[in-house]
């Protein structure tokens, strides 16, 4: 079978290529929010004092951080779905959420006396946090990976890790509404572990499912 034979088949195959990966990723993100919300209200639920918590800076910051992470990672995922090599700075957006978190951590260290640092970092619910963030994130990560399959990511590990950050950020945002540890110090330690696990799983899954 020579190359012209193959071109016969390629030219004859007029099946349209489907929506661009950017749109698939938007659809996946909406699906991820719906799926995480459904699981959250079915199995986890908001904390009892959510109405008063919502008026505190620390509680609100958890959503700023996790949603910034999810949507900046989504924007980077749209770019990674294209095959063209990255130019310097095109993944810089990924540092936005960590930057916000570091600023919040510094503010917390200034605002709170040193003997409270450790108790706040360790918190009350770290084990529940470890369990719920991955649980709420699995479906979101899978949806984003599925959307990335329609793209042409040249580095499946990297694209999978970013999918993990999108899904992990969404899962963590919902978990934040349940969690009664609001200190940025707690977020720095435990949310990072939970989301990090999802990024790692995403990278592993990506190396397998995002090859083309």
């Amino acid at each position: 079978m020579n190359t012209n034979d193959l071109i016969n088949s390629l030219a004859a195959d007029q099946t349209p290529p489907g929506p661009p990966p950017g749109r698939m990723l938007m659809i996946a993100a909406i699906g991820a929010l719906v799926a995480a919300a459904a699981l959250f209200f079915a199995m986890v639920g908001p904390r009892d004092d959510i109405m008063t918590a919502m008026r505190t800076v620390r509680f609100d910051f958890k959503f700023v951080y996790t949603l910034t992470l999810a949507f900046s990672a989504l924007a980077v995922a749209v770019r990674l779905a294209e095959p063209q090599p990255l130019k310097p700075g095109e993944t810089l957006l990924l540092w936005l959420a960590p930057g916000l978190l570091m600023a919040a951590v510094i503010a917390e260290l200034i605002a709170v006396p040193a003997d409270l640092w450790m108790p706040r970092a360790i918190g009350n619910n770290s084990m529940i946090c470890m369990r719920y963030i991955p649980m709420l994130s699995v479906v979101p990560v899978a949806l984003v990976l599925w959307a990335l399959r329609s793209g042409a990511p040249t580095n499946p590990w990297r694209a999978g890790a970013v999918a993990g950050l999108v899904g992990g950020g969404i899962g963590a945002a919902f978990y934040a509404a349940h969690c009664n540890d609001d200190s940025p110090l707690f977020v720095l330690v435990w949310y990072t572990i939970g989301i990090g696990v999802m990024a790692l799983l995403g990278a592993l899954a990506g190396s397998r499912f995002l090859r083309w």
């Binding site: 071109i7 390629l10 290529p17 779905a81 095959p83 329609s150 042409a152 083309w212």
Partner: peptide, 10 residues
């Protein structure tokens, strides 16, 4: 060529 064809949506 096969990859160009299948990934032309990107």
């Amino acid at each position: 060529l096969l990859a160009i064809h299948l990934k032309r949506g990107t």
